[in-house]
Design a protein around this nucleic acid. Structure first.
Lengths: 357, 357
DNA sequence: AGTATTTTTGGTAACCTTACCAAATTTATA
DNA sequence: TATAAATTTGGTAAGGTTACCAAAAATACT
């Protein structure tokens, strides 16, 4: 195996000491211009890159952040990840991706345990900080294990979670305003005159589902009776929306006036099911949703949903994480009321374009 | 700062030497069962994790793979990434994500240079191998720079690219069969009796576009004249498909019989544009595509496309990469003829369900 | 029992860099 | 010119682990 070129070798070639080469590498000002130039030339000429490993050993920094995401196939998360990456890169950080696939895949406890072991190993070993993106901390049983895992760590790598606060968990939480999100879309449907409104998607017993459903019910209560037969949970994928819609069609003589989908992917499944029955939103039923995933403007119909402002969320989370990493005093950032209603077609507020069949 | 617990500390507590603790950590058989149990107990009790950094220093391994992807928001890539992750994890590898965003975003050369510097630094420093997923090596100018970057590396980290072979590039390529993909979908449309077929999407001057377009033309040539006015390039996003379709509608009195979209996202844009004009595939025009991204079965219409079998692609790429990392003789894997036609609705081969409006 | 063999254990160099302190050199000041 | 101060350079420990060789202990063999 070809021997790696080291700082020692560079020093030898430049006829100087490793200390001085190290200073050039770290832009330490106390190097004479002439020597600096000479050394830099030799560095360039050899395409020398200092070993991150050795650097990390002495500085206790790896310039790597772990990003834990429950489902990398969810466009909502990839959007968030790319926001995070855009902010992390300029700060000199690289992202270590951990895809746990714990969201609504019906994993059993032992699978989860394996995940967590891997997660711990990674966190311990080679990252300066950890960013957890929702999901995997939702399912109660999983959350519990993650919390205990977090708390047993020797690692001082700080953890920031974008998601719902979990009691007893020693991490900083950047909470998405689930209540406001669902309230916004529900109010929108109510304002359009709908009263018989259902809620579709999400996994029973999972916190994000409970929270969104609770917000839905709370908003509805003042205006209308809640029809429990129009609340159909399942999971977060398009198929879930499809099946729920099919179930509602099969069990109800008449379509409800409106539906709130737990997210855009579920709504996509609803649209597909409606189409299979010759129906469409918003003409036959109004459908609103949450998350504003990247394809909302291309769905048929274009989806009316609630944007969570991922770019802000990502920036805030990283801001906190950097402060924690640098052991700075945590200063507050503006977090309030991010969710914003995006009105497109699927609720009928804006009429579909003329010329439609 | 709390001092990190080390192997030395464990050895002290166990009343043994660091060597023996290290042996326990690495499942070295030459440790007596009694001592092993005792040491393991102390390890568990202290939640001790050996430092990856120190390990890496001496073993020259980081158990980390860099995954370079041009656009993490592309569901096709995330699908591929999750396939890769599923295969890498059991082998003990973690993925370092590098999102270059060089696909069709019109970056200028200096941006690219920044990317490449970051890319080099990461590759050099802390990964055992590199996996490049298409895209970023497509654009000629980018490819050139990447190649020279790759070739100047001191790092012996092997590189495997899932994408088109680039001359002079010192990496192993797992090629997707672009020709066959496009040929399959084009032949399908031809077999359905269509002759006036257009090609939409992709970025001019980019290799994947050229290759797919060439395959389209080659397949068409035997059966039909090629109408250049029905070839509208742009990029790889839904908006691109939307705009292209709008352009075709604006410049042609009559709709063409069929369209081949460069990928499913572009097709999604086409569908949306058609809907805005009261039109739909396949009734008014047949639309076929490539890539089989994860939502194809929920689009309206369900898209007929070509699957690239990412799970196989990911497995093969990783298989090669592992062999290279372990300095094993490279043994061939089956790679042939992965692309497979997925017939759904958008070409009209399978009639849409009854009961549609 | 005494020796040869095998199994188990311990000590230490090496991996590559930075931090820190001391030494050498240059520049400024009396 | 001699001395003080500032700048630049060099030497070496430390960081946490594994690899390797030597030593010790346990076991087998004559």
């Amino acid at each position: 195996m070809k021997k790696n070129i080291t700082i020692k070798e560079i020093a030898k070639q430049a006829g100087t000491s490793v200390s001085t080469v190290s200073r050039v590498l770290n832009n330490n000002p106390s190097v004479s211009p002439a020597k600096r130039a000479k050394i830099q030339a030799i560095i360039d000429q050899n395409h020398f890159q200092p070993s991150m490993l050795a650097r990390g050993m002495v500085s206790h920094k790896t310039n790597t952040l772990a990003v834990v995401v429950s489902d990398i196939n969810n466009p909502y998360f990839t959007d968030l990840i790319s926001q995070i990456e855009q902010n992390a890169r300029p700060a000199g950080y690289t992202l270590l991706l951990i895809n746990t696939m714990t969201a609504g895949t019906g994993q059993d406890a032992s699978d989860v345990q394996v995940e967590i072991e891997a997660f711990k190993r990674i966190m311990e070993a080679k990252v300066d900080g950890v960013l957890i993106l929702g999901g995997e901390i939702d399912k109660e049983v999983v959350a519990e294990r993650y919390i205990s895992a977090l708390n047993t760590l020797n690692s001082k790598a700080p953890v920031v979670v974008i998601g719902q606060k979990v009691a007893g968990c020693d991490a900083l939480f950047v909470e998405r305003d689930q209540k406001r999100s669902v309230t916004l879309i529900t109010q929108h449907l109510l304002a359009l005159g709908h009263r018989q409104i259902g809620f579709v998607g999400g996994e029973p017993g999972v916190r994000i589902t409970s929270q969104r459903l609770a917000a839905f019910k709370a908003t509805m209560q003042t205006y209308s009776e809640i029809d429990e037969s129009l609340i159909v949970l399942n999971n977060y994928y398009p198929q879930s929306g499809y099946d729920a819609m099919a179930q509602i069609l099969a069990t109800h003589k008449q379509l409800p006036e409106a539906l709130v989908a737990i997210n855009d992917r579920v709504a996509e499944g609803i649209f597909r099911c409606l189409a299979d029955h010759g129906l469409q939103a918003p003409q036959d039923i109004a459908v609103g949703s949450c998350d504003n995933f990247p394809y909302g403007d291309f769905l048929i119909p274009r989806i009316t949903t609630v944007d969570q402002h991922n770019e802000v969320l990502g920036r805030i989370a990283l801001h906190y994480l950097f402060q924690l990493i640098d052991h700075k005093q945590l200063e507050q950032t503006e977090t309030t009321h991010l969710p914003e209603l995006i009105i497109r077609e699927s609720c009928g507020a804006k009429l579909p374009k003329e010329g439609k069949q």
